[in-house]
Structure formats: structure tokens, C-alpha cells
Design a binder for these strands. Sequence first.
RNA 1: GCCGCGUUGGUCAAGGGGUUAAGACGCCUCCCUUUCACGGAGGAAUCACGGGUUCGAUUCCCGUACGUGGUACCA
Length: 512
Amino acid sequence: MSISQRKVRVRFAPSPTGGLHLGGVRTVLYNYLFAKKNGGEFILRIEDTDQTRFVEGAEQYIYDCLAWCGLEPDESPKHGGNYGPYRQSERKVTYKKYAEELISKGHAYYAFDTTEELEKMRIAFKTESNPSPQYDATIRKSMKNSLTLSPDEVNNLLQSGTPYVVRIKMPENETISFVDMIHEEVSFDSNVVDDKVLLKADGMPTYHLAVVVDDYLMKITHAFRGEEWLSSAPVHVLLWKYLFGLDNMPQWAHLPLILGPSGKLSKRDGAKYGFPVFAMNWTDPRNNEFTEGFKEKGFLPEAFVNLLAMLGWNSGTEQELFSLEELVQHFSIERVHKSGAKFDYEKAKWFNHEWIKNSSADQLFDGVKNVLSSKGISQIEEDYLKQVIELVKERCTLVSDFFEQSAYFFRTPESIDVDALKPKWNEQKRLFFEQYCLHLQQLNDWNVSEIESTFKNLATEMAIKPGELQLPMRIMLVGGKFGPAVFDIAFHIGKENTINRIHSAIPKIETP
RNA sequence: GCCGCGUUGGUCAAGGGGUUAAGACGCCUCCCUUUCACGGAGGAAUCACGGGUUCGAUUCCCGUACGUGGUACCA
């Protein structure tokens, strides 16, 4: 069956070496969207072939991030599936078999050069016009490999357990081209790509061999990856040609890079400009270096996914707010851009703000509750919190903003902005508030309109403009110049709190 | 250095041989609101440069510049 008729299968193939950054999550997203849009399957494969870079906990972290984003794979080491194992370290023998097949077909060879010898070569051949000499068609002739050594010598070395790698034998004077779903036709001159190592001395494959073999074995139909891979695509295309046939090669899509404010997106940039680059908090177990995540910063997963989707893709309409379901519906790889996009934290926050505003108190409840309890506000009544969320959500850009925007609903402000009050404060106003408290005390029915009309009537009676009294009252109740309508606040915090806060504020205003 | 990829306001971007070159974020002004937000109305700001092709190029072609990726027994 030709590849275009097969069921769509895509894969995200990270190496578990650290935090999952923006670009990684977006690659997952586009994979996921493409798979769901086409009724296909989304596979997570762990590319852990570099044992020196193994990081404890990194694999679990990837599952956690995907789960948070709502991008669950159909198959993975954790989720299982019919094409396992899904961890490349567990597929070692398979790769070796294909490496040998390549050698027997004359497309690869054994190389016995030591690291030191390679280094020597690079120094020896280094010139001003060629600062980084490659192990290529000319240089391989002067190296220690099965192309230069006699079959006997090679056998002896192999028999005696001499460490070796397998390298691809790049053809000379060929143009290697393929059609990328995003970049259209891309071509390379085979003379400028080197004899990449396919199988390392420890018996593990390099990425180049592993992707091709696994994509074939796992029946991948479309391969999405970051554009940083475009340069090595000719190696992969050749491997497909030599091993499984170009007809079976998945369609490639090299996704544009996500850049930081000063070019390449880095953790450093994140720290410098105050925004996260990882999906979730990540602490590197090797050095305890901590990097903040979008989740903990206060982003809603829906917003995170939404903003990532729009970085390099758009629907062609003016719609910017999309749920995951809507993205699945509207996504098309044809509308993915060719060029990289700079990540703009301001816009990211706007997406989050929009999602918070559009979410119900029920949806926001758990997140807000966590934020508050982490700040010492627990023992919250569910209905009360929900009412508060409704009242303040349009003022919150991040979920973490709910703390400062709503803390005063749960406890008396620790300090109040007396400086904003002092200049216009006078005897008459103090009298007003004392009277007002007395009136409030008498109120039988504690509701917004009673609280408000009592306030206004008394103000009129005392010939003070109500407006001049509202700000002081707000500051007494809230602590600062923010928050929803004052009388709503008074209503929610209750009669006793309202009166107490007013009473305790007056002396503070009057202390010089 | 070499190779690949790219280039519409500060950012994300629509568009594409003839347009007043959408929209969003951010910024500014005003309205609403005697708080902060939300909301509403406006405003400033763009086709990297140079050559072609064409009656006409932001759009097509070629260069240049710039950016970005690769140039590892890392992915």
C-alpha cells in the first residue's frame, strides 16, 4: 500500500535530556493536530540513544507536560502500543542489523578512527577557507576504515574487538532533494554532507539511523520536526532510499523555529526577560538548576496550547482564540509558515487573560484554590470562592494574579494605602464613616442595594459628594485602589468585616 | 569559511502583479467608570536593499545584506 493511502501516523521523538521548551511543545501540538485532523495516530517515542546525556526524571516530565497540555499520545513507552518498544535504548539490536545491511550493500562502512585521530585529522586539514573539515569522500581515503584497509585487516580489527563506528558512505556529485510539506522542494549537494556516524562505538545508533529505522518500523507516514534538522535531512533521505525505498519514506515537515527576543530561544533569555521557556517547572537533577514553567507561572493549558498554535500558523481568518478541538478542526499544515517566529511574552499573556476571562468560575476553581492555599488562604467555602472568581477574573492575566486580586475577600488587608487617603481626609469624612458604620449595624438585610443606598443617603444628608467617599471606603476594605465595585465587596465580605475594617482603618489614616 | 532555510509595522501576522497593504499584541489619546480592570472609539508605526521582468512590482526572477540552523561517536 502506498504511503499516501496508509493510516496517518505521526510521532514526537524527544530525547529525555531536560525541560520541554516552547518549540518542543509546539512540535507535539502540530503532530497531534495533524493526527487528529486526519483520524490518525500520535506516537511518543523516546530517543535516548545518548547514554551520556541521560537525565533522571526527564521522561516522566515529558509525560507530565503532555498530560497538562491535553496532548496525550496514542502510543508511547507509558501508553503501550503495537510497535514497541518505544524507547530507542531498548531497540539496540534492531539498529545494528540495519547498519550491517547498509554495509553489505556498500552504502556504509566500518571506521576505526579514534577520537584523537579524528581530532588530528580536523586540525591537519583545517584551513582558513575550510575551518571545519568533514569526514567526507576525500578525507575518508586517508582514514582508518574498511574502505582503506584490506578485508583481512578489517576482519582482524573486528575480531580483536577494536572499537568501531559505522559511517554512511555519502555518494559523490549527487543532488539529494525531497519535497518538504512546508518548504516545498529542498535540495542538497551530496559533496557537502559528510559521512555521518550511523552506529556508535557503544553499539547505539545515532539519531540518523534511529529515526529512519524507527519511522519505518513504526509505520510513520508524516514526520514533523524542528527546522534544525533540515541540514541533516539528506542523510535521512539517503538512508530511506538504501534501506526501505523512497516510496515508503514519510512526508517531511520541518517546522520553523521559535526564537527568543535576541534570536535563539534560551533559558537565559527567559530568565533575563522574566518569562518561562519550559512548559512546566523543571529542576535539573545534575546541578539543581531550576527553570520556571508556564504552568506554574499561571498559564492555563488551553491558553498555552492556543498561543503556541498561533506561533507559526494561523487559520487565515481573524479568529485568534481556539480551543484544542477547534484547532484540530481548522489546522492545516499548508498554512504553517516557513519563517521563524519571535516569542512575544506580552501577547502570550494576552492569550492567557482572554482564556481566564472566558472561563467559568467552575473551570477556574481548582487552579485558583491552589494559588490561594499556597499563599496561606485555605478553608475556603466553594460557593464563596466561585463568586469571588467571577468578580475578579477580568482583572487577572495569570492564574497567580488571583491572589493579590482577591486576598482581601478572605482576610483583612495587612496594610492599607493610607498615603492615598491622607491628603483629602478630614473631620467630616471621619464623622461620615462613623455614622455609616452605625447605620450598617442596623441593617437587617445585608444586600448590595441597601449598603449602597444607606451610603448615598447619608452622604447627601451630610452634604458630601458620595464619590469623594467611595475611594476611602475602597481603600479601607481592600487596602488599595483596585478591585470591583465597593458595595459588592462590602456585601461579600459581610457586615462584620466591613464595619471592622472601617473602624480599624480610621486611626491609621489619622496617625501623622 | 562552507551548506541549508528564511526576510510584510517593535512583535504575531493577512494578502499577493494595479489595495487607502487586513487584523491582533504592545504603545498613545479619548469615552465609560469618582478605584483597578473589562468594554468602546480613535492614533502613531510596515512590504530589508539593489538590479531586472512588466504599462505597472510589496507580490515574479537574480544578486546583496541581515537573521537563523547545520557543519559532533548530541539529539
